[in-house]
Design a protein around this nucleic acid. Structure first.
Lengths: 330, 330
DNA sequence: CTGTTAGCGCCTTCAA
DNA sequence: TTGAAGGCGCTAACAG
């Protein structure tokens, strides 16, 4: 069957003994067709296994029922849940999804955005790496467009890193912790700024607490390497930049015979799959990436259907309390 | 600029003072155009920022320069690297990629395959969940098509789970191990069958060794729960179904004070990101998913360009030796 | 209610 | 070497 030519609307019209227009009307649910005729057309269509050529429809209708998503790296776990949430939401609304992986390359990113936009009705730019100026240009050229985890001259959907970090602090505070250490990660990222801002707030609002910032990295080794500084700071509650860093610290503490959470409560960030398996299991916060993707689609869908989306929606991570945090030793 | 109508070939023709046909010829690199004229056309096109409407081209040329990929779950790490490898390879050849997530749903899978195929030139079906009969039908309808991690009436690309498991056995054997335990996982999967086949081979070819099969699951807890059985079997080398299971066993062993790799060498499978951070770090095997994806594209590309791809290519995982395996205690 | 006609934007014979 | 004309398959006025 591979080489069988697709049946066209002309075939159906001939088979049913009507004009192309009538077939078109029936296929598009136009009510102004004699029921009997309509039934005959449907029967012919079914018999011939006909369904309209989407390309031809796209050309005449000026819409493709397809959207494009540009991501910096398809293998980055951050984008995967997002893509799934996005894809499923879009499919539920009858849209198809074109993806493009920019390989973290700024030029490629711009090109892919422009090019894939022409094959679709709208674009979702995921954490674009390009400069603000470039972004402004591209956004103007590819509208309608929605930005994910970046702001610009278009509706945006972003994860909120501030609220959950603050929630973790509050959780520890409620358990009696007063001295905290924050293992700082990538300093220049936007999410890092949000975390620092949460720290500021906490310092202001929780007057009797103290939060030390300890420069560390984003991986296991840097978490482990921060143990001495953490202990020296006198902190009982530790907020790591991410789970890997938290696990490094946890591992180093365990090796040193330091009870967790007895002497040190440790919280991570991300909820990577292994977080539940450390001993004790890691308290952390998880960005609901699927929801982020679904929201991005929702915003684009609004744009596509003439509605006005929220200009900037924010998705808040859930704090997942596990065994690595608890009351400090009396 | 958002609402600016795209410039068409007619605009360029008018601007350059030539016919549509000439513009078309120039844009497609047809050499039979007067160089001076061609230059004028190119200048006009550049000035107007023209590039041909891909939809219109698709309609008349009968090809979209797009392929579709159907996966059961976009958030499954197994498919992510594959998708990236695939996407990058396809983009390098000037193709676009349409994705569809079937949500592990068989009916959806069939529908998505059929529907997305009509918007593209070929299809990659990734680990389809449908029955052999259904698959045969679908494959016939959507050709050209390439199968990933499944065989059928189309070229296929699959990971080889047999060779690497055997390689791990050989690695342990070379270190002096003679008694092995295999923590069996999902019994019904194809990859499980390949693993068992590797065990058979090893039993036959390594006459002085013994391999016990211990039923376990695919997660951390089942690995941990298998410790007693492993010890009872007298094995010194353990082959876990996957990394999670291996980590569970490793964790339980450590808690029990059983030296790894001194008393027990443990190897996992998959090389999940955390595998390098256990203590000791986990020996494991990693399927190069990116390569798998690139190979799948290559096969489809062959089909698309009239070449004949290898009917069944196999990609072999690399064994990564870390600290969790070593010589057995003398 | 139904058929005829004119495009959507592009490529490609066919003449000139 | 160039232009005019006819589709690709479909939808949407416009008549009848």
């Amino acid at each position: 069957m591979a080489g069988a030519k697709q049946t066209t609307i002309t075939d159906v019209a001939a088979h049913a003994g009507v004009s192309l227009a009538t077939v078109s009307r029936v296929m598009n649910g136009n009510a102004t067709v004699d029921p009997a005729l309509a039934e005959r057309v449907r029967a012919s269509a079914a018999q011939l296994g006909y369904s309209a050529n989407p390309l031809a429809r796209s050309l005449v209708l000026g819409r493709t029922q397809t959207i494009s998503v540009v991501v910096p790296d398809l293998a980055n776990p951050t984008f995967q849940g997002m893509l799934r949430g996005l894809s499923r939401a879009a499919v539920a609304d009858g849209y198809h999804v074109l993806i493009a992986d920019s390989d973290e390359n700024v030029d490629e990113e711009r090109l892919l955005a422009l090019e894939s936009r022409r094959r679709s009705d709208g674009l979702i730019l995921c954490a674009p790496r390009m400069s603000d100026d470039q972004l402004a240009d591209v956004v103007a050229d590819v509208a309608p467009v929605v930005l994910v985890n970046r702001t610009g001259d278009a509706p945006s959907v972003a994860a909120d890193y501030r609220t959950p970090l603050r929630a973790i602090i509050d959780h520890l505070y409620a358990q009696g912790h007063r001295r905290f250490a924050y293992l700082a990660g990538a300093a220049r990222s936007a999410s890092s700024g949000q975390r620092l801002s949460a720290l500021e707030d906490a310092r202001r609002e929780l007057a009797d607490c103290e939060i030390a910032e300890i420069p560390a990295g984003v991986d296991f080794a840097s978490g482990a390497g921060a143990l001495d500084d953490v202990l020296a700071s006198g902190a009982t509650g530790v907020l790591a930049f991410n789970d890997l860093s938290a696990m490094g610290l946890l591992s180093a503490a365990t090796e040193r015979g330091i009870p967790v959470p007895g002497r040190l409560s440790i919280a991570g960030f991300d909820d990577i799959p292994f977080a539940r398996y450390t001993s004790p299991a890691l308290t952390t916060a998880a960005v609901p990436m699927g929801e982020l993707g679904a929201r991005a689609w929702s915003a684009l869908h609004d744009l596509l259907t003439g509605r006005t989306p929220e200009p900037a929606v924010t998705v808040s991570p859930d704090v997942i309390v596990r065994g690595s945090t608890g009351a400090p030793a009396a």
